[in-house]
């Protein structure tokens, strides 16, 4: 369920993920969409990988992109995957649309030695402004109306940091970007996309 970000930010997003990968590593991309991230990682780092995707059209697109895609619903967990069978498990901008949010993060950390989670930061100032103005935020990162959004578990960077502490998850690295640019100051206010590299404590 990748949101339609502009292409500059999209590549930045990919580039950061690629920077957290090892050459030839084994990757599982959950909610892989049309497989473009895996395709990018395969071309740039020769990673071996599989995508997991629920949607018919996305599965077809991923297959057309030459990506190995497994059609299944992430809400059912990752029982088809052995513990520690991947170097990295990625959940790119899908966390907020999961019902079983805690479950999927635990499953990622079971199956992968490391996990990468990215999500739109609900604490981004533009979102806060819209709430202050009295409406649910609608933005490039959150392009849905309240009544048709697939996003059921939106969170802020501060929320996710706390989640990691409470769930004994070690944050190895955190990057925050807005319009493709790195954000260092006041990330929870100025960052639109949060990216975490995590593992079990």
């Amino acid at each position: 369920m990748t949101s339609p970000l502009n292409s500059a930010e999209f590549r930045q997003d990919f580039a950061i993920i690629a920077g957290w990968m090892t050459f030839g590593g084994k990757v599982l991309d959950l909610g892989c969409g049309d497989g473009s991230l895996l395709q990018f990682l395969r071309q740039s780092l020769e990673v071996r990988g599989y995508g997991v995707e629920k949607d018919d059209a996305n599965c077809l697109a991923a297959m057309g992109n030459g990506v190995n895609v497994i059609q299944m619903d992430l809400e059912a967990g990752l029982s088809g995957f052995e513990a520690r069978s991947f170097d990295v498990v990625i959940l790119s901008q899908t966390l907020q649309a999961m019902r079983n949010t805690e479950g999927i993060v635990q499953e990622m950390l079971r199956v992968g030695r490391e996990a990468i989670v990215t999500f739109p930061n609900f604490g981004y100032w533009r979102h806060r402004m819209q709430l202050i103005a009295g409406q649910m935020p609608v933005s490039e990162e959150l392009p849905y109306q309240w009544y048709d959004t697939p996003n059921v578990h939106l969170c802020t960077i501060k929320d996710f940091d706390e989640f990691c502490v409470n769930h004994h998850i070690q944050v190895l690295e955190r990057r925050v970007i807005t319009n493709g640019e790195a954000v260092h100051r006041l990330p929870n206010l100025l960052g639109s996309l949060a990216m975490y590299r995590i593992r079990r404590d």
């Binding site: 599989y50 059609q71 088809g80 995957f81």
Partner: peptide, 21 residues
């Protein structure tokens, strides 16, 4: 079918799986 897929994944083989409605 998912049993077959799992065995292929366990062997790191190239596999795609479609569950057609």
């Amino acid at each position: 079918s998912r049993e077959i897929v799992k065995a292929l994944l366990d062997n790191e083989l190239s596999v795609s799986y479609a569950e057609v409605t």
